[in-house]
Amino acid sequence: MEVLLAVVVGILYAAGFYMIMRRSIVKLILGLGLLGHASNMFIFTIGRVMRGNPPVMPHGHDVLTQPYADPLPQAFILTAIVIGFGVQAFATVLVKRAYQTVGTDDFDQMISTDQP
């Protein structure tokens, strides 16, 4: 299971890296999205995977008994997902403005701030 997840994480990262190295700024945003998923999966997997045992204790219990999935990586990822959305939204809007202002979506033409 973890071996396969490792492969999934690796492929998501590779796809993300590939996308952010493209010349199109739109692809950059999609790449950032992929990298976000990759990182969440990365943290999730190295926190160990535990099938079907959420860190929620049944009613009437006052301690969580083994086995349970590690709650800490989950808390991290939960905030990371929401923050990731905020960052993605901001990057998207920034790209949109950059496109409107500069008039190109080619990164290679955005290397200097001098007037063309």
Partner: peptide, 12 residues
């Protein structure tokens, strides 16, 4: 606080 859910998911 006692079941899956919470402020983040609720807000979303």
């Amino acid at each position: 606080h006692s079941e899956p859910g919470g402020g983040f998911v609720g807000g979303l």
